[in-house]
């Protein structure tokens, strides 16, 4: 026998289920209850930088849209500063919730393009959004990132993208540019499956 370590274990994850919206976005579930629903405004009114729109669809292994997914976004501001790590614009939360159209599965959200942020060992990371997906059928939230298709040089040097051994799979994390709109589809399974992270 040895001494017990006595660490607690993290509570095990369980699926968010089909009715996640009741808890996290009751307006989308079809009712009004809170004075302010959280997650509607990532940037606040004072954020500097390029205003962008991100559109896309989450699809499953059969190619069908995942209409009941809920995505959380976490990002730095245009200077590359995360809230809590330095001064950001008044009202900049850097976090939001994205809910697709229940009929089509298409999602759309507005934010500002983040700046590059410092990664490990003094290596900057290319601008990116951190995404966390939960839904019915997802047993533990899926972490991925969205990089920007107009940042070729920064993306090529990004320490996280460079960890992806199969180079063609890096493209699953890079949004296509169309003016101020970025197209980013997320495939949960199959040939076009996104890279997901164990963070």
């Amino acid at each position: 026998m040895v001494q017990p370590l006595n660490y607690l274990k993290e509570s095990a994850s369980q699926t968010a289920g089909p009715y996640v919206h009741i808890g996290l976005a009751p307006g989308a579930a079809g009712f009004d209850i809170y004075r302010t629903e959280l997650g509607h405004d990532i940037t606040g009114p004072n954020a500097k930088g390029d205003r962008i729109t991100v559109v896309g669809t989450v699809t499953d292994g059969t190619g069908s849209p995942v209409k009941d997914v809920l995505i959380e976004v976490w990002q730095a501001n245009a200077d590359g500063t995360y809230p809590g790590r330095g001064a950001v614009e008044d009202g900049f939360r850097g976090w939001g919730r994205v809910i697709p159209d229940f009929d089509t599965g298409k999602f759309s959200f507005e934010t500002v393009k983040p700046g590059a942020v410092m990664g490990r060992n003094g290596r900057p990371m290319a601008p990116h959004l951190n995404l966390w997906l939960v839904a019915r059928g997802i047993n533990i939230g899926l972490n991925t990132r969205m990089y920007f298709g107009d940042e070729d040089k920064a993306n090529a040097a990004d320490p996280v993208l460079n960890l992806i051994e199969q180079t063609h799979r890096r493209d699953t994390l890079i949004a296509k540019v169309d003016g101020s709109t970025y197209h980013f589809d997320i495939c949960l399974q199959g040939d076009a499956e996104n890279v997901f992270f164990d963070v």
């Binding site: 292994g61 019915r136 997802i138 047993n139 960890l163 399974q189 997901f196 992270f197 164990d198």
Partner: peptide, 13 residues
Amino acid sequence: SVARSPRNALLSL
């Protein structure tokens, strides 16, 4: 979960 589960290994960061 069958059609909503990634088949590739998660990339540990």
